[in-house]
Write a protein that binds this DNA or RNA. Structure first.
Length: 554
RNA sequence: GCCCUUGUAGCUCAGUGGAUAGAGCAGUGGUUUCCUAAACCAUGUGUCGGAGGUUCGACUCCUCUCAAGGGCGCCA
């Protein structure tokens, strides 16, 4: 591991040791599990790394924070050449000024590790399943699936970069009520071709994709009109499902999303996994029967009310199959962590699912649900409806036809998943020309242009000549890459990556305007070429995490 | 009624309990004999929704409150 993250870990340990020494001398106990937190000061005159431990612990040591800070510094012992100097400042901060040499070493590390720079290598590889989109296959993926798609996809990439073994997964809801309704809707449309008065199910799917599927089936299989309504609905539902799933693959592929696993809900029913899950809960005493239905005693687990697992008609609920599904992830396939990206409208489902998992004897923290606020879609001043039942939603495919892929993938990752996002379709199209993603890509293209045009001289690059403010700032920015990755993973927030890559591009543009790579000092030219190359590696790597292309020309 | 999320500059949003709350867009003024001007540089803007509290220190944590979005089904 390289980058500032490793330096901060090192300094944190040093401060921790110093604190233990002082604590022993004074007969004081440090708070259990205390680690000194390192942060980057906003103002660079306060150093490169700052520590607030003295202020936090002044009370424990019954002393003034500034005095404690000084004592910590005295007890740091030998700190390597990495640190140029250490000072106390303000109310009791310990500010570390990192040496130029450390930054130059990092530049060499980037050139050495190339696009692997910033990757985090954990002591032990853990496995993670990231499930996202999982759109209802009764219709084409729509724009409401767009945000969750890129959030999940980028999170999965971020975890891979953090050293986890990642499985990208789509949960296919190919079973249950909505599939039945899907088949009945298709059947009604089929019948209406010859009998316009045939009744359409009251809460059926009204989209025109349903009519088109029925018409296509009718022309391919005219003999099907002889089937009973029930047989026809079944035939149409499996026909429609197959077509829709194929389309789902196709559109998500266009969206840059490729899954490792498509997990059909129906498998859980066929294999008996759903019943087994209910039996497991029963064996833990978490199940009872009432009104002919089987209930999960959720109120024993800090929920507001109990939940039905198996209806009085014998059909298991979605909740029951979801428990079985997550037992499959966490027990059967034994992932260390399962992350689901869900729309905020599913938030009520989170707690009871975690509690059901807990009731099964599994640590509920192994399931993390990223709740993403729904996108409010407008076109100018008009709200665009997204109801799939009425079929008036904008499909993901239509959306991608209007806004460039790179812009979409970047745009949906510029804000925290928790933020409510108002997307103006007109603006998205217009702004795609002045979108921040082009600013970042432009930096990459500019670098490629420099690397193509500027000739490298036959001398050794002299990094000592990289003294401009923007040159040092570029290196500093790059060293923060691994911190951004770790932060994004820990917070389940891909916007940390877009922010990082934007800042790096911004610093590069400043550098470009302040320093000429091609100049009359060959040792400096070569050093700057190396710097450009390093920035290129990092930009390319970060854009790759985002699933955004890194063009060589624009 | 209960639960979740959000509220920061005209707009869109950043902001690990830290030091003088920041970016982009929009506005204004400048920068090109030379590696891509889709760029750079300079410049104004704040009741951090409101009121209390916790502490060395609060945009950040707690309580109350106002506003917006979402959820409270033998739907998924």
């Amino acid at each position: 591991m390289s980058g500032k993250l490793s330096l901060e870990t090192y300094l944190s340990e040093k401060v921790g040791q110093a604190l233990r020494t002082i604590a022993t001398e004074n007969g004081v106990d440090l708070p259990a599990g205390f680690t000194a937190v390192m942060e980057t000061p906003k103002d660079e005159k306060n150093g490169d790394v700052s520590c607030n431990a003295a202020m936090q612990l002044a009370k424990v040591f019954r002393t003034n924070p500034k005095v404690l800070a000084d004592r910590i510094i005295e007890n740091l012992g030998g700190i390597d050449d990495y640190v140029e100097r250490v000072e106390t400042a303000g109310p009791g901060f310990i500010n570390f000024y990192i040496s130029r040499q450390w930054y130059l070493n990092e530049l060499k590390a980037v050139l050495d590790e190339k696009t692997d720079y910033g990757s985090i290598v954990p002591e032990k590889t853990r496995t993670i399943d990231v499930e996202y989109v999982s759109a209802n296959p009764t219709g084409p993926p729509h724009i409401g699936n767009a945000r969750g798609g890129v959030i999940g996809d980028v999170l999965a990439n971020v975890y891979a970069k953090s050293g986890w073994k990642v499985t990208k997964e789509f949960y296919l809801n190919d079973y249950g009520n909505q599939i039945k309704k899907f088949g009945e809707s298709l059947m009604a449309r089929f019948r209406q071709i010859s009998d316009p008065g045939f009744p359409f199910p009251e809460d059926g799917y009204q989209g025109k994709d349903i009519t088109e599927l029925a018409e296509k089936f009718a022309s391919d299989h005219p003999e099907a009109s002889g089937l009973s309504d029930g047989e026809l609905a079944d035939a149409l539902s499996s026909y429609g499902l197959e077509a829709n799933v194929a389309n789902m693959h196709h559109v998500l592929d266009k969206y840059g999303i490729r899954y490792d696993v498509w997990f059909p809900e129906s498998d859980l029913h066929k294999s008996g996994a759903v019943e087994q899950a209910v039996e497991l809960l029963r064996s833990k005493g978490a199940v009872y029967e009432k009104d002919g239905a089987v209930w999960f005693k959720a109120t024993d687990y800090d929920c507001e009310k109990d939940e039905v697992l198996i209806r009085a008609n014998g059909i298991p609920t979605y909740f029951a199959s979801d428990i079985a599904y997550h037992l499959n992830k966490l027990a059967e396939r034994n992932f260390d962590l399962a992350v689901n990206v869900w729309g905020a409208d599913h938030h009520g489902h989170v707690h009871r699912l975690k509690m059901a998992i807990k009731a099964c004897g599994i640590d509920p923290d192994r399931l993390q649900v990223v709740l993403m606020q729904l996108v409010h879609l407008v076109r100018g001043a008009k709200t665009v409806k997204m109801s799939k039942r009425r079929g008036d939603s904008v499909t993901l495919e239509e959306f991608l036809g209007e806004v460039p892929l790179d812009a979409v993938r970047y745009l949906f990752n510029t804000t925290n998943p928790n933020s409510h996002l108002i997307l103006d379709l007109d603006m998205a199209i217009k702004n795609s020309l002045e979108n921040p993603v082009f600013y970042v890509q432009y930096a990459h293209a500019r670098i490629c242009s420099i690397l193509r045009n500027v000739k490298r001289a036959e001398v050794t690059a002299d990094y000592g000549k990289l003294t401009d403010k923007t040159e040092l700032e570029l290196i500093k920015q790059m060293t923060c890459y691994s911190s951004a990755i770790l932060n994004a993973a820990e917070e389940f927030d891909p916007s940390k990556i877009t922010k990082f890559v934007y800042d790096l591009a911004s610093t590069f543009h400043s550098f470009y305007n302040a320093c000429r790579v091609s100049n009359d000092d060959p040792a400096l030219t070569n050093a700057r070429l190396d710097l450009c190359l390093a920035v290129r590696y990092v930009l390319e790597s970060a854009l790759d995490l985002l699933g955004v292309s890194a063009p060589e020309e624009m």
